[in-house]
Amino acid sequence: MVTVKYFANLKQMAGKEEDQFDINEGTTLEQLSDLIKQSVPQLGDMVREKKVMISLNYDVVPLDTVVKDGDEIALLPPFSGGI
């Protein structure tokens, strides 16, 4: 099982802070986006269209990255910290 967290406007779109998904061995983030799409259709599409960044265990990674049980994934809209 992996956890997918949503932040800022994406959290508002999802109406929740996170989802948890059971995955098969060798699942990539691109394939995980299908599961995300089943939960929050708009966000699954945004991942596929690369409109959001994705982090895996606190580092931004590409969509072909393989995930494993216990991983923490997050969908990250453009950052706007600082001023």
Binding site: A8, N9, A74, L76, P77, P78, F79, S80, G81, G82
Partner: peptide
């Protein structure tokens, strides 16, 4: 460091204006 913070650090700003609340895109 401030440029790198804005580029790499997952922090998001929401502004409240007369039109409502707006999540700010990267500046």
């Amino acid at each position: 460091a401030i440029a790198e913070l804005k580029r790499t650090t997952p922090i998001w700003k929401r502004e409240t204006t007369s039109k409502g609340e707006v999540w700010v895109q990267a500046t």
